[in-house]
Amino acid sequence: MDWIPDQTARFIKKYWMFGKDEKILVAVSGGKDSLSLWDILIRLGYQADGLYIGLGIDGGISYSDRSKELCVSFAENRGLKLHTVDIKAEYGRSIEALASEKGRGMQKPCSVCGVVKRHEMNRIAKDLGYDVLATGHNLDDEAATLFGNTLSWNQDLLRRQSPVLAESHGLARKVKPLCRFYEKEMAAYAILRGIDYIYEECPFSVGSTSIYHKEVLNRLENERPGSKLAFYVKFLNAREEGLFSDSIIATDSKPDQVCEVCGQPTTNSGKCAFCKIVGA
């Protein structure tokens, strides 16, 4: 039970994520990874508060309500501070309604959900003065993302995939302390620690490309154990050794403008993607 926190501490240092004097905001969803991350950071003695973003997803299983309950009870049982944001209360419509209004995502609100979550996580981390925003992405998440970006040779996303995204251009520093743990290890940790998490998947994730990529990588892992970790770690090593140092690839595509409504960085002139979605 100590191996996961010990290794997490090692990765935090190895990738220069944060120090003991910094304030961390952990984005929690009610799932095994984010709640385990919060548990680990507290066990390691970090100053970590939680952030839950209520997306208003029902899917016939009251998905968002249930996941919020789990985050609230996790925090209450341990005397931790949890910030909550309700998208519908804040912006008048749930994620599903926003996606349907904008006609984005072919009946799935995942792309709108991603934009909204990224915007709100950054807004709250900056507004409340946190030094760093931590998410529970595990090795399977990172390997699946890497696999998808490699299949499409998305140079910009490949270049930006990292355990740490430094603070810049009005964006909070983002870190992924669990990026080298298998998803199965995190599920085992949550169960052994008695962490009550939501077993059900987001109803919209069924049939998603990222889950398909995870399944493909699990087939590979089954026949060639260690493949997932090697794929990801060797990518990180190659990055560090200059894989993206070529001037053409390294053209900086970071946002150099700010949204005229919310002030967050954007690659577009005028409004950012989030403000366009919520109709601000």
């Binding site: 799932g31 095994k32 995942c110 919209f204 994730s205 990222s210």
Partner: peptide
């Protein structure tokens, strides 16, 4: 059996 795959 508990599924450990999450995401979307």
């Amino acid at each position: 059996l508990i599924s450990v795959i999450s995401g979307g």
